[in-house]
């Protein structure tokens, strides 16, 4: 193969490579959007139901932190897309609302702001800025409701899986039994 042919093949490969990088980049250059899963959970001490059962993980998290709620009930849940130009709003049953805003995306990490406001005055009660990750949830307290506490749960998109490169499970083998040693007679080793 001639030098010119080698150059042509190189140019062709480079062109394919850059097109491969460029096409997904076009989608990102548009209005950025992130997907999150939201749930509104009522935690209370009325009864001992955990509904649905996958809230058991949340119950464990809360009990680890000293919360003594006995009942966790999901009132609503949704998978929402947050555009940078269009925040998502969740109306809570206790005359409050949660606004979820995509503040920025830096180095592939989304900065999301969760604002709890009082309705109908829209007075801001709290504002939380968080960075999304492939693992973990935000449990944002949103006030009293119906004898319990409302908690807004923000979790990663269902398609997002935490990366586990190597299964970190290791079990130590049981120690080998040591042979029983009989005490030596004093005269044998101690002159």
């Amino acid at each position: 193969m001639t030098i010119a042919a080698g150059r042509a093949a190189g140019f062709l490969g480079a062109a394919i490579f850059f097109v491969t990088l460029w096409v997904p980049g076009l989608a990102l250059a548009d209005d950025p959007v992130v997907q999150v899963r939201t749930q509104v959970v009522l935690a209370s001490n009325q009864g001992s139901t955990v509904d649905p059962p996958d809230l058991d993980g949340m119950r464990k998290q809360f009990s680890q932190k000293g919360f003594a709620f006995t009942s966790y009930q999901r009132l609503s849940g949704d998978q929402i897309a947050i555009h940078k130009s269009k925040p998502a709003e969740i109306t809570l049953p206790n005359q409050r609302s949660a606004t979820i805003r995509l503040a920025d995306i830096k180095r592939g990490t989304a900065f999301v702001e969760v604002i709890i406001s009082q309705l109908p005055s829209n007075v801001v009660i709290s504002s939380t800025v968080l960075t999304l990750g492939r693992e973990g949830s935000l449990f944002q307290h949103a006030g009293d409701y119906n004898g319990g506490q409302l908690i807004l749960v923000i979790s990663p998109d269902e398609k997002v899986k935490p990366r586990r490169l190597i299964p970190m499970t290791w079990h130590a083998d049981a120690a080998l039994p040591r042979p029983e040693m009989e005490p030596c007679p004093e005269s044998a080793c101690c002159p």
């Binding site: 990490t109 709290s126 990750g133 492939r134 693992e135 935000l138």
Partner: peptide, 15 residues
């Protein structure tokens, strides 16, 4: 990872 999920874990920056 999907858009916005470059970090391994969710992290609260400011309250």
């Amino acid at each position: 990872p999907p858009t916005g999920y470059a970090s391994a874990q969710l992290s609260v920056q400011r309250v």
